[in-house]
Amino acid sequence: MNDHHPASRLLRDATDGLEHDLAVDVDRIVRGGTARGRTLRRRRRVGTALAAAAVVGVIGVAAGVGPTLLGGEARTAPEYADQPVTEPVTTPTPTAEPTEAPVTPPAGQVDALVTVSAYDVPGIVGRELGGTVSDPLTQAPYGVSDERQDKMVHFRYDGTLTTVGIERADGLASCEALVDPADQPDGQPAGRCETRDGVLLLLHDETADGVTSRSVWAWRHGYVVSLVSYDSPDGRAEPVAPAPPISEADAVRLVTSEVWFGG
């Protein structure tokens, strides 16, 4: 190491007490970073899907069927606008020739209802794939979200952490935006986007800190159904399998299944 290198001494001497000498307000920096982080997170979630919906004035199926069919009450903790756009919004820089045919954004239309409870998801996964599943993990940092249009559940499949989510697609960025390397801290693409049998998929295998995760997202019926399979029990450390136990093919089969939907 370089602890005793003259350059180390120089750099440390020069920066020692820097924040004090420059009268830096650490709390202000933290508040600013947190605010930017929230904005960045929100922007990624809302992203291009909602922007596209606003431009073409898409009214989702939910607007037509109204809140009664969708359950009546509001989401408990909306991270993004979950109501469909009810009025066409004029784009700030309109093209000379308006589009005559309606343009359907790839992820904007809700045309089915999510009919499963988040608490039933582990059982469904076990039944569909044949592995051994645990009950939902309810203790922090996991927890279960079981809103009508926003489900997330963590459980163990063959002893490894598995996460399944079902979210409104218009609350997420487009697949391309989600994998965009420019938005990743490491500058690497966060997976790839593919269309298989007419279904848009995001596929991402990642190894970080010795733990491998396999993520597959599918844009279906106006929702994103996602599954993440890890090779370790807590997704943090100590892998117990050579790879995530749910193969990409099985994950794709699961997230593209109709088992989540009805109506």
Binding site: G33, T34, R38, T39, M152, T163, P185
Partner: peptide
């Protein structure tokens, strides 16, 4: 430098709160 730190903290915030990814090991 302050701007860079804020941008860094923002990215860490997003990763820290990412629901579909494992917690940050280090």
């Amino acid at each position: 430098a302050e701007d860079l730190v804020q941008e860094t903290l923002a990215k860490v915030y997003v990763r820290w709160h990412a629901a579909f990814r494992s917690p940050i090991e280090n």
